[in-house]
Design a protein around this nucleic acid. Structure first.
Lengths: 172, 172
DNA sequence: ACAGAACGTTCTGTTTACGGAACGAAATGG
DNA sequence: CCATTTCGTTCCGTAAACAGAACGTTCTGT
């Protein structure tokens, strides 16, 4: 089964990253050697208890062997790929944090968001040109930009691909 | 078993939130009625396949039935509580994103981090006074502050508790 | 070169998670 | 007011996940 195979290969990856032999992990976790062998081969649908014993021995969260979280939405546009890292709702506003990459050679325009929306960008690498469509600013590695997003705004990479953290905050 | 009981009660919560009967969820998910009954009672160690069928029918990520992620480390200091939201490693640096709250009435001092470390703060609510110990700055809701963290620095809340997003980036 | 240990896979018997049927209780409706 | 449906739990036979043993193979060390 496909799910079992995905879990199996992730399990094997984690084990090898830690330079553990299959036998060693079996001993550490208290899981049978044969069980682990077949799990890694994707020939078993593990029980939660078994998975928990293994991930605990691997000092990993249980989620490390489950697929990428489908709730972690990804948005792809002309020049920007974004993956949602976190989303909070508080009484006043909704805050979303994205890990984004801006590709060179293209400009992405975004229409106005709800009134009061603000965006912050912290650049990790590359140089970005972002902000209000009428007055974009540049931000290099380690720098920050901030603009109102309730008017049309743009994202572009000036030099090299840009890795950055984008925070969007809009009234509830 | 304790793990099974936690999963069971979360499963029941999710089902009730959606106003589904146990029988209806069993039908939707293709899981046996008896199986689901005993799962919710915490009397079974579910198989991944079964859990996946159930969470899919509930339109929830698989992680919704697993406990809170223990990898989400929390740090508590004199004035600051921080929960790690995300951590990336790239060839050049490590980036950590925290959701933090700064309590009023106390000042937290932090010693110098590794050379080259930078911190960014985006304030969601309240007014913070943060930055180099020798030259802190104020940032109100929606504002941003940025300082080198390889020297002693401070965190304080000027008015009301401060909710904010803290990004720490230091060379690998 | 050979003994011994450790490796990962395959086999074996037991336990248990599974789907479905059977059950009594509560809700529904004609 | 009784017939029918739907509810959640319990029972049952089967399939499979489990721990541990047995196996051949590949390291390790003397």
């Amino acid at each position: 089964m496909e799910l079992a195979q995905q879990v199996g290969s992730r399990l094997r990856e984690l084990r090898l990253e830690r330079n553990l032999s299959l036998s060693a992990l079996a001993r550490l976790s208290g899981v049978g050697k044969g069980t682990l062998s077949e799990l890694e081969a994707g020939r078993r649908n593990a029980t939660l208890e078994t998975l928990y014993a293994l991930t605990t021995a691997l000092d990993s969260p249980l989620t490390a062997v489950l697929g990428p979280d489908p709730a972690r939405a990804t948005l792809s546009g002309r020049a920007v790929d974004a993956v949602l890292v976190e989303r909070y709702e508080d009484p006043a506003a909704v805050t979303e944090i994205y890990r984004i990459r801006i590709r060179t050679g293209a400009v992405q325009e975004s229409d106005a968001h709800p009134p009061g929306t603000q965006e912050h960008l912290i650049v990790l690498s590359g140089t970005a040109r972002v902000g209000a469509a009428s007055a974009p600013v540049e931000a290099g590695p380690g720098e920050h930009a901030h603009w109102p997003a309730d008017i049309p705004h743009v994202y572009a990479a000036v030099s090299g691909d840009v890795e950055a953290i984008l925070t969007v905050r809009y009234p509830a």
